[in-house]
Nucleic acid binder design. Structure first.
Lengths: 143, 143
DNA sequence: TTATTGTGACTACAGTTGTAAACTAATAAG
DNA sequence: CTTATTAGTTTACAACTGTAGTCACAATAA
């Protein structure tokens, strides 16, 4: 999973990011407690993850005296978009449509979400091609 | 990335799967050549990946004499759906809508794909909730 | 001012992944 | 039948991940 700056954020790091995004900013204590409650992780585990996220510049440390504050450097929306694009880049272009269909069916979406998607689709329909080509192999085989 | 049987298929393995899905069935020679052309991999690399896929039961070996044939055991559509679900499971439920919107905007979709998505959305709109809750943390904080 | 504790940094370690070499067994060529 | 070639199996190895212990230092309490 890639984040907005194209750094890979691993699954466990992703969980920490979600907490930080939701809280807006947090101390390590808050994160340690949240992760302990949510995942049963030991304090060390959360600290390590937090550190790796700082190294990857997905999170930054603020403050001058000791209980530092941690804030996200990368945005949630952008990171999720990047992760999603990363996934779709690994699949056959021809299958994107039906995969999206599956996702839409299996997720809860609000009325506003749906209206938004409908608007986007209506717009996109204007210039949509008849067919999308398979891009899995060199040559013109199709899956 | 999880496949249909809930086994993790890694990024490079995914590339091999795409080739096998597209070809329908293939010999190792065909795969080695395709992967070499597509990714510049050495024969060994493709062999290793193919082996791991067999162990994971994502691919099976057919035939009784030596140039064996390899065929997918897991379906492409199901595997992609599983991978997509896996991704969305790691993100905030509240953000699914806008992430899907981003994906739709950035991908090529055929007229038929779009029509299908529109039909699904119309149906889904009938029972859509006003709001989707954030599920990132215990308690009712929202991101 | 010293003892205690909370917070951050460093180390650890097994399992997975990406990439490939080496080895072995089967088949084809001479 | 022997040799060369190809296909399949084992081994390798560094980087990355998940998970966590230990050490050092700053803040606080005694």
């Amino acid at each position: 999973m890639k984040d907005a700056k194209n750094v890979t954020i691993t699954d466990s790091e992703w969980i920490v990011m979600r907490a930080i995004w939701t809280m807006g900013h947090a101390t390590s204590r808050e994160l340690i407690d949240a992760m302990n409650e949510l995942e049963g992780w030991s304090a060390s585990t959360t600290k390590t993850l937090l550190h790796r996220l700082i190294q990857k510049q997905a999170v930054a440390q603020y403050g001058d005296s000791r209980p530092f504050t941690y804030k996200p450097v990368v945005g949630e929306k952008e990171s999720m978009a990047a992760a999603a694009d990363d996934l779709f880049d690994h699949m056959c272009a021809m299958r994107a449509g039906s995969t999206i269909a599956g996702v839409i069916q299996s997720r809860e979406l609000s009325r506003a979400d749906i209206a938004n998607l409908q608007a986007i689709l209506a717009e996109k329909a204007k210039t949509a091609p008849e067919e999308v080509q398979c891009n899995c192999l060199p040559g013109d085989q199709t899956c």
